[in-house]
Nucleic acid binder design. Structure first.
Lengths: 341, 341
DNA sequence: GTGAAAGCGCTAACAT
DNA sequence: ATGTTAGCGCTTTCAC
């Protein structure tokens, strides 16, 4: 396990009979170092097998060029797309990504924040776990002025930027569409109301009903984990309802697809008997039959914007001091909700 | 951007009127430090807001507790599942994950390796890009005895462990199944033959044909990027063939689904006219109609095993010095390939 | 059980 | 244009 021994700038300095400082400068294009000296240094470094020591540098300059990413889960289409966007930007701007999953647990989230803190990340990109109650665990970082950006599942904080879509409007759009298709009893299936995304979508659902003067039966609201399994169970629950709902708006596509499958299996026709609208525009939404009406959620773009904003903030660049950034969403109407020609 | 000032072990030492060495020891359960001293130190650390400095420590002990992950793309079901598995294990064992995407480019792969090298990761988990020709860019790390594990898209190297499934057998299983269903002209759609996974699956395809004495028309082999777009194009190409193939084996499910959609759109019935088998057991495989026959690829498990093996190697634990680890795959037969009752 | 002191490899202010 | 020097914060050997 032990390496022969690392080459340092001192070794190069000695070999070339110059000072370590000059080597350090030569290695990084410092202005005011002769061309030939620089060339000599680079050449020596290369052939001695010199490897830059990032730690020593970090220790010295107190900057890591590393961004921490804390997310509930990595393995969903939406999240992997977001991360892909973040990685792209980070890579372009010379930052590395340190990634940690909370598995939807507040406890793990706290642990992750602490690890990131100790790793001295330059900034944090966070989407909150289902059951996170407050965001005090970020206080230590904020006190040190380490910028934190929340995305998707966000928290209100005067010092942090949030990047979201307008979930209220999206919920409103989805629900209004169902109402326009003639639905009178629309079920809502969503995740924990502690999280803005689900609370807001429910709000939009209510707004749409209110605006059209349609009463809401509270029994039609189901809160679950939005997993495939949970979707199937929700479908069972819905099919027990009497009278049967004639529309379902659910807060992700995984759930929507699971529900449609159960309904079809039970011989209930979609959209004729029950119209369904999902959320995210996951690839499965255009594979399921009938194709799923859903809200397009720009994941890659959200990742890119989050990373860009964070890096700009870290470097005190302009356009950094925003409170909230709202991306555009759109309702994609497909067959699963269309009852009218 | 400037923090008030970090608390160090010296500050704690001064406050408690003891030495920094004692503080350092107290902070980490060093045997041979009095219980009450330790308690005093921990208490002071807590209330002074002490934050451990990982860099200084790394610099000192030359270990980072960080694992580098280099992959083609993050945003596929398979890869995000793998990463989720890795993160789980890394987290449990106190390691962090540094992730980088090559976007299928060898050039970016080389850059990533260098960054990881400079970041002094303790080990590397790698799945190769489409067009990587050789693996010399890993030599510097290997020379320093930094362990590297390849998974999925691997390369032969005496010093590295590879984690794979038996792609030849998987390709054989898929093809043999199609032959058993009565297919006589089976097309193969796969990715770059520079990568073991695609070359091996093609090999299996050929083996199955050879074993049954069925001749192969080379015109039936299509090499592309396996994207959705590429899948649609492959379908177009296949539909031009005369005579039409009666079976398609394609190396991922994204491609398979795109192909099925095109075929259906063109009025070709699946599986009656053309039977289709995919690869990966992506969620879309059981949503598409007809449900897709595919090879189950244990992504999460592969990620967990890769991470476990790497961490064991880093720590010189037993069972670490393996050359190749082969995980179990299985053929999942669904409707897209079933012609017989 | 605790302390003194020497570095880990690099950078940057200051000097030349 | 280059050199000197003083740390960054921590660990650890060797003393006591």
């Amino acid at each position: 396990m032990k390496s022969p021994k690392d080459i340092t700038i001192y070794d190069i300095a000695k070999a070339l009979d110059i000072s370590p400082a000059t080597v350090s400068r030569g290695l990084k294009d410092h202005p005011g170092i002769r061309k030939d000296t620089k060339k000599k240094i680079l050449e020596a470094a290369r052939q001695m097998g010199y490897q830059h020591n990032t730690f020593a540098r970090n220790l010295r300059i107190k900057k890591t060029n590393t961004i921490g990413v804390i997310i509930p889960r990595l393995n969903s289409y939406f999240m992997s797309t977001v991360i892909a966007g973040m990685e792209k930007i980070a890579n372009e701007r010379g930052y590395m990504l340190l990634i940690s999953q909370t598995q939807e647990s507040a406890k793990k989230e706290i642990a992750s924040v602490n690890t990131m803190f100790n790793s001295r990340v330059d900034g944090l990109l966070v989407s909150l776990a289902f059951d996170t109650e407050n965001i005090e665990h970020f206080d230590a970082m904020l006190k040190k002025e380490i910028p934190i950006i929340f995305f998707d599942r966000v928290a209100e904080h005067t010092k942090c930027t949030s990047i979201v879509i307008n979930n209220i409007k999206a919920g409103y759009d989805a629900t209004m569409h169902l109402i326009d298709q003639g639905c009178k009893r629309i079920a809502y299936v969503g995740g924990s109301l502690k999280r803005n995304v689900y609370a807001d979508r429910l709000k939009g659902y209510k707004q749409a009903h209110a605006e059209r003067g349609v009463a809401i039966d509270p029994a039609l609201t189901i809160i679950n984990t939005l997993s495939e399994q949970a979707g199937s169970e929700a479908a069972q629950q819905i099919m027990q309802m009497n009278p049967l709902p004639d529309g379902i708006f659910t807060a992700n596509d995984t759930s929507a697809v699971a529900i449609i499958r159960e309904l079809k299996f039970a011989g209930i026709s979609v959209p004729e008997q029950i119209a369904v609208v999902g959320f995210n525009n996951d690839p499965i939404s255009w594979v399921i039959e009938p194709n799923l009406t859903t809200i397009h959620y720009p994941g890659q773009e959200m990742g890119e914007i989050a990373a860009t904003t964070l890096i700009n903030t870290i470097n005190n660049l302009p356009a950094a001091n925003l409170n909230t950034l709202v991306l555009r969403h759109s309702l994609i109407i497909r067959q699963s909700s269309q009852r009218k020609k």
